[in-house]
């Protein structure tokens, strides 16, 4: 197959990915939003809309802002197919994003390429399926598993899944990128030390931290490009 045909095929794939992604997202939304009403009808107790709107105004708006930030940050990392699936299946920060980034690195895919799009989609679909299977098995075996999983001795391990993940990821990504990593790490550490109440809003702090890292990366990129230019 020649290059032109491959590109046409890939463009066709992307187009249908958007169509399918939107269709699946709408279907999932409909199922999720109707489930409380269906369950409510079964229990003879439909949701109390007054309480719902009060609750939405007090907590829903906070999550709306958080979702905007997540959307802007994660879509460039995940590509089209990966984004649709990731937002349908959730657990982005503690699984989908690190999983997709790791997969991309393992195979050496470059951002914005067809390879990156495909690897990201495969990675998110696989990790989502694993979660679905683990949760289904867990729910099936809930009674025999509960004492083991909830034993006080194991609690610290499961309370620290995210620190364990980010510690490992930090080593992998700081290594070789220390010039980019040092400043955001210092700034964020100082910020959380001086304003400890921000710990509850860590997901919002990704934006300034990412902006510092990208700014530094851009400066280093320009300097490297200028050096290469003068060497030539």
């Amino acid at each position: 197959m020649n290059e032109e045909k491959k590109q046409a095929l890939y463009a066709q794939y992307l187009e249908s990915t958007h169509r399918l992604g939107r269709l699946f997202s709408v279907l999932t939304l409909l199922m999720l939003l109707s489930a409380p009403f269906v369950i409510g009808a079964y229990l003879d107790a439909l949701p109390d809309m007054g309480s719902f709107w009060r609750g939405f105004l007090s907590i829903g708006l906070v999550y709306l802002v958080s979702c905007v930030a997540e959307y802007l940050i994660y879509v460039p990392m995940l590509g089209a197919g990966g984004s649709y699936l990731a937002f349908i299946t959730g657990n982005l920060i503690n699984m989908k994003i690190p999983c997709a980034v790791t997969a991309r690195d393992i195979v050496g895919a470059k951002s914005g390429t067809a390879e990156n799009e495909i690897i990201s989609t495969l990675s998110i679909a696989t990790s989502s399926l694993v979660t679905i299977v683990v949760l289904a098995l867990g729910v099936l075996l809930l009674i025999p598993l509960q004492p083991i999983l909830q034993s006080p001795a194991l609690q610290p391990a499961f309370d620290n899944v995210v620190p364990a993940l980010f510690g490992a990821m930090a080593c992998k990504y700081y290594r070789g990128n220390f010039k980019i990593a040092a400043l955001p790490l210092c700034v964020m550490s100082l910020l959380f030390v001086f304003v400890p109440s921000l710990v509850g809003s860590t997901s919002f702090m990704i934006l300034p931290s990412g902006a510092i890292a990208i700014g530094l990366a851009w400066l280093l990129h320009r300097r490297r490009a200028a050096e290469e230019g003068s060497a030539l």
Binding site: I73, P76, M77, I93, I97, V101, V162, P163, F166, G167, M169, A170, Y173, Y174, N177, I180, A181, P184, L185, V187, M188, S189, L190, L191, F192, T202, M205, I206, S209, G210, A211, I212, A213, I214, L216, A217
Partner: peptide, 12 residues
Amino acid sequence: AMFIGLVSAYIG
């Protein structure tokens, strides 16, 4: 860099 920023926010 964006991912480094994300990890840095959490480590911080």
